[in-house]
Design a protein around this nucleic acid. Structure first.
Lengths: 262, 262
DNA sequence: CCTCGGGAATCACATAGGTGATTCCGCCCA
DNA sequence: TGGGCGGAATCACCTATGTGATTCCCGAGG
């Protein structure tokens, strides 16, 4: 679990932090992103940004707080399919669909920007480097989804939770939300952990106790501290490659791609 | 499980069939697709088209046979994350990555086209309607992945298998590979079904017997027949919306999108 | 300071599904 | 015509995880 150098958060725009990791951004590019983020709204925990069946009209950008993507079955069971953290933009391409096949809810009070389709398209036209970074981010989201399927399909309860915590730690540290002691705010109830990992709440509870007893994690006041990152990652079989947080050979990549296409 | 009008296969290009469902294609567009498909290669069952760690250089298009996307863990367990059927193009965007985070293998002998990045980019430039259809197909792949996560995370063994069979039936019928009696070739061993659904082979076996005993399906000579589509779909909680096989309001969609962006 | 409520922790018990090994069956091939 | 082999079917047994209900705890609000 390699942790990127974590300068203190100091209010820097999380989207810039995230994209900057994929493609170094110019002053102008940063400014235009900042500008888009001006028009943010506050939303309350528990409300849905959009629901299954709705027609998507805007893309959501999370500036503060946590959101999550989920599907609900008739029998009341629910599967959480992604967490959307500060700096995350919920899939741009989704505008193509006439109906959402899932909902997006809020796990905490949140600051959200609603970006109309037009604005996103315009932004991507004018700033191809931003477009690239967004495409990259989309690919990472997909890779993450695949990893979740692997997690739920093949790993034990202990591994599933361990893996989830490793992933969240890496993702949060990218946007500066992890402290030096590997601790971070985790606004999830055990029910939500259960719906993420395909376990029951009771078993999530048991498993968390196990993780605590083995001195792998500790929880206090809604924060989670990873006490032994190495061991936790080992148990989980966690390999952060799929998150592509390390060195961005993106530029070379793209040059290669373009030259191929000539 | 609404089955699209299934004209007999009569050698029509499966990619054209698939994309034609999203965007009506002109003569010229069909021809250019046919042309791309000229240079196909035969591949043997069991071989991998590309492996975890490889750098992707081309996109694969399946013309005949079945492929599958999978990840392998150190302990030998494997999760299958998608089936690639005739007409399926394995994610174009993946060319952006420098390393595959999963492998693609063959479940049967297969006829595959390797399309270089340059060619795909060129094709999309020259034929924006094809580009749209490809984007649409990509979205459907993602939606399918989400549905699989839901399947493995929340449903019982019986439901998981039922759901998988419903999905395959719909997808195969789009490319004309389902007979009138709702039967189709299913080149999967019970081990592969197990690795898809996150179950053990023994339990897959038990569950298949149950499905047979309840007269929901029958299997013979590598074909699967869905005896009672309605009941099977009901058990599975299957709703084919996410596959977007019915009526393509795509055109209107896109017009709306464009007008928004003005 | 009380109390109310959501979430965490516990409990006793049930079972879906996993394990490992063995046997069976149809098919290809010599 | 008889291996040999991959996959299916069975078997006996086990346990990880689920169920439903109850109790506990703590922080928010009156």
């Amino acid at each position: 679990m390699s942790k990127p150098p974590s300068e203190p958060y100091r209010g820097k725009n999380p989207l810039i932090r995230k994209l900057g990791r994929f493609v170094p951004l110019t002053q102008a590019e940063c400014e235009v992103i900042e500008q888009v983020c001006q028009s943010s709204h506050q939303h309350r925990q528990g409300s849905d940004l959009i629901q299954q069946g709705d027609k998507p009209r805007t893309v959501f950008l999370i500036l503060k707080g946590w959101a999550f993507r989920y599907k609900q079955l008739e029998d009341g069971s629910r599967q959480i399919m992604a967490y959307l953290l500060p700096g995350d933009l919920c899939d741009i391409q989704i505008l193509l669909f006439e109906k959402m096949d899932h909902s997006i809810g809020l796990l905490s009070d949140a600051e959200v920007v609603k970006i109309p389709a037009a604005e996103i398209l315009d932004l991507m036209d004018r700033f191809p480097r931003i477009e690239r970074a967004l495409m990259w981010a989309t690919l990472v989201d997909e890779a993450t989804l695949r990893e979740w399927l692997l997690n739920v399909g093949q790993r034990s309860a202990l591994q599933r939770l361990a893996h989830l915590f490793c992933e969240l730690c890496v993702r949060l540290s990218v946007v500066g939300l992890v402290d030096e002691d590997e601790s971070f705010v985790l606004p999830l109830t055990q029910t939500e952990l259960a719906d993420t990992t395909g376990l029951s709440t009771v078993h999530v509870n048991r498993t968390l106790q196990r993780l605590r007893k083995d001195n792998l994690i500790s929880t206090l006041h809604g924060r989670l501290t990873i006490l032994n990152p190495t061991k936790l990652a080992e148990i989980a079989g966690f390999n952060n490659d799929y998150l592509h947080t390390d060195g961005p050979p993106v530029e070379q990549q793209l040059r290669a791609r373009v030259s191929q296409s000539m």
